[in-house]
Design a protein around this nucleic acid. Structure first.
Length: 427
RNA sequence: GGAAGGGUGGCCGAGUGGUUUAAGGCGCCGCUCUCGAAAAGCGGUGCGCCUGAAAGGGCGCCGCGGGUUCGAAUCCCGCCCCUUCCGCCA
């Protein structure tokens, strides 16, 4: 959420940003509401001031029945006026907030212009796609033949985009999560196992709602929703709090299942476990002071940590600087890491590194008291450390052997009891 | 799922309709005193919005949201959270 004062002072900038981000928001309507609300509130405040004066006058009138009754009669009049005005005030507040929640963030100057994901800019490419001296297979064939994946029964149980991992694939998944969790925790991030079911305010705070609400599973009986990332829960953690500057930055590494409806992706990635409704993810999260330079620095650092993980898993990858149209509403800037997927002959997204300035913090009401005593909104950032299914795809496809087994990268072996290969030869 | 109790400022805690513009204490900050510290004394100590060049002024906030009333921390309704007991349960 942007500061309403900022929008008042920079309406043309905000309109331009909305246009470039392909986001529909009526800035003029928003400003009209703001004007209306301020006028209404001023009027209501005056009435309340009058009410307070009369209230004291009634109290002080004591036994003077006549004066007292006069003040009470006046009070009734003021109360009646307020009763008309207050619902109007509340409506305006709600409408304004609704529009504010739809207003996108201001992108950084280093964000590339563009019309779609095709205009994302490759920042770097690391590692060479492996030259296979045999015909490489896709992850579905590999895992199914190793007896580690059952998509048919997965769909039978959970519907489309469901899967069942079996045997060593289960340990592989846990090993990947363990490895990522430890790698990030060693750098001073506090591990968190957060609720995967969260209340609405967490989603609004994080910017999943109101736009994107249809991507989230709702549990209406219990007034909670399934999180698509631990980021949602972590944003909710400090909602409504005023933190101490000396406690910043707060660095978390969250672990959670992730649930995504994938609404509107019918034709996309129908094969295998590239796009599924449930997976597990280790997520990096930072809360820092309201300072652009610091945010930008942590953004780069979060990228570096994620790259270390990808490098340790010996996966070829590239880094994209997301263009303004592909950035989503909330981000100031975002990098995606895409790992090489041999069966597709292209790079696929595995990580998403973002910073938000105070956009999430305003929505979630997360502030801190500076050493100077001034209370400000914090800055928030997050990046994937590792997401289970896409990591599995990249790992098994890139490290497959001619005999059908999967070579386990050295860094991951401690988490798999020292094992060098996954599965038994079948080719 | 059932029953009971509770939620007040950074913390403890008083407060059951109008001298509460939230008592008192602790903590914190400043000052006085002191070689310095402690103690003591004095003063200060929240967040948000509106208005104003500023000083200042106004409004709101006692878990959250409604309601009753001239007036609500206080009464009523709904919700959230915590504690205890019973039941169920990995």
């Amino acid at each position: 959420m942007l500061d309403i004062a900022f929008i008042r002072e920079n309406p043309e900038l905000v309109k331009d940003v909305a246009r470039r981000r392909k986001t529909a928001v009526d800035v003029d309507a928003l400003l009209a509401l703001d004007n209306d609300l301020r006028a209404t509130r001023r009027h209501a405040d005056d009435l309340r001031a009058e009410q307070n004066r009369l209230s004291k006058a009634i109290r002080d009138a004591g036994a003077d029945k006549e004066a007292r009754d006069g003040f009470i009669a006046q009070g009734r009049g003021v109360a009646a006026e307020l009763k008309d005005l207050e619902p109007r005030e509340r409506e305006l507040e709600a409408s304004l907030r609704e529009l504010l929640l739809l207003t996108p963030n201001i992108p950084d100057a280093s964000v590339p212009e563009g019309e779609s994901e095709d205009d994302n800019v490759e920042v770097k490419r690391v590692g060479e796609p492996r030259q296979f001296d045999f015909e490489p297979l896709d992850h579905v064939t590999l895992l199914t033949n190793l007896g580690m994946l059952d998509l048919e029964r997965g769909a039978k149980v959970g519907g489309s985009r469901s899967y069942i991992l079996k045997g060593e694939a289960v340990f592989l998944e846990l090993a990947l999560m363990q490895f990522a969790l430890h790698h990030v925790a060693r750098k001073g991030f506090l591990p968190l196992d957060v609720p995967a079911m969260a209340r609405e305010f967490c989603f609004i705070g994080n910017s999943q709602f109101p736009r994107g609400r249809e991507q989230t599973y709702a549990l209406p009986e219990d007034d909670v929703f399934l999180v698509g990332t631990a980021e949602v829960s972590i944003t909710g953690m400090h909602s409504g709090e005023i933190l101490r500057e000396q406690d910043l930055p707060i660095k978390y590494v969250g672990y959670s299942p992730c649930y995504r409806r994938e609404a509107g992706t019918y034709g996309k990635d129908t094969k295998g476990i590239m796009r599924v409704h449930q997976f597990y993810k280790v997520e990096q999260y930072i809360i820092c002071r309201a300072d652009h330079e610091e945010s930008a620095r942590w953004h780069e650092e979060l990228l570096r940590v994620a790259e270390e993980i990808v490098v340790a898993l010996e996966l070829p990858y590239r880094v994209l600087n997301l263009c303004v149209a592909d950035l989503g509403d909330a981000k100031v800037k975002g990098y995606d890491i895409e790992c090489w997927v041999p069966s597709e002959g292209r790079y696929r997204e595995t990580h998403s590194d973002s910073y938000f300035h105070d956009y999430q913090a305003r929505r979630a009401d997360i502030r801190y008291r500076g050493e100077d005593g001034v209370v400000r909104y914090v800055h928030t950032l997050n990046n994937t450390a590792l997401a289970s299914t896409r990591a599995i795809i990249a790992l098994v496809e890139n490290h497959q052997q001619a005999d059908g087994r999967i070579r386990i990268p050295t860094a991951l072996r401690p988490w798999l009891g020292g094992q060098e290969y996954l599965g038994k030869a079948w080719r």
